[in-house]
């Protein structure tokens, strides 16, 4: 526990919910992006998984829509300290997209339209832990929240859930992504408060 701040009294009451350390509850949906919101026409959109051997697996927008969808309801935690509970999404499980992908890679680097990247261990994208989502709360995903489609990996800080996702590069080594290379944590587990490098 930290030192007591003289005269500080708790005013928020988030007692009934268990939040990761240092997080507070929000009802809003704040936005964190490093640059402008990219504009991605759906007829040119594609999602590509590239294996470590260079083999590529591609889905157009229409092909993604035709795949069986799941509707995860999950809590999300942003490294800027807000948490939002019970958010509902619609999209395709990474398990399904990875089904026919031949790989022995341990890591994935997610790439986005606009140039953003983020790195994750491949196992954190499998076993029902990650999706490519295109709807939020029953409506199409707004561009500022990552539409047309974003990665959703809710068990890690939300910067890992790459907005405007374009593909995954599977690789045998861990290559740091955008925020990870400017001081943020390599893995980003909110329950262990892994915000910054060294946490």
């Amino acid at each position: 526990m930290g030192i007591v701040s003289p005269g500080f009294r708790r005013r928020r009451r988030d007692d009934d919910v268990q939040l990761p350390p240092g997080q507070y509850l929000t009802e809003d949906f704040p936005v964190l992006s490093a640059g402008p919101t990219p504009n991605i026409p759906l007829d040119r959109w594609e999602f590509v998984i590239a294996s470590e051997t260079g083999q590529e697996y591609r889905w157009t927008w229409d092909e993604l829509q035709e795949l069986p969808a799941e509707e995860p309801t999950v809590d999300i935690h942003c490294v800027t300290k807000w948490s939002k509970l019970g958010t509902s999404w619609r999209g395709v499980s990474l398990d399904l997209l990875m089904e026919d992908v031949e790989t022995t890679a341990d890591y994935a680097l997610a790439h986005s339209y606009g140039g953003y990247t983020t790195n994750l261990p491949l196992e954190d994208l499998l076993d029902g832990k990650a999706w490519i989502v295109y709807e939020y709360e029953g409506s199409e995903l707004a561009p500022q929240h990552g539409g047309p489609a974003r990665l959703l990996v809710p068990h890690l800080y939300f910067w890992k859930s790459a907005k405007w996702v374009r593909g995954l590069q599977l690789q045998e080594f861990d290559e740091l992504g955008f925020w990870e290379s400017v001081g943020y944590h390599d893995y980003g587990d909110p329950w262990r408060e892994q915000r910054y490098a060294g946490d």
């Binding site: 949906f29 704040p30 936005v31 640059g35 402008p36 140039g115």
Partner: peptide, 23 residues
């Protein structure tokens, strides 16, 4: 502002943003 700058011809890679508050 960021969208307007892109519209005026600025390279999105040279536009750095920091946002706060609700949407």
């Amino acid at each position: 502002v960021a969208n307007t700058l892109v519209g005026l011809g600025h390279d999105p890679r040279r536009i750095r943003t920091e946002r706060f508050g609700p949407t």
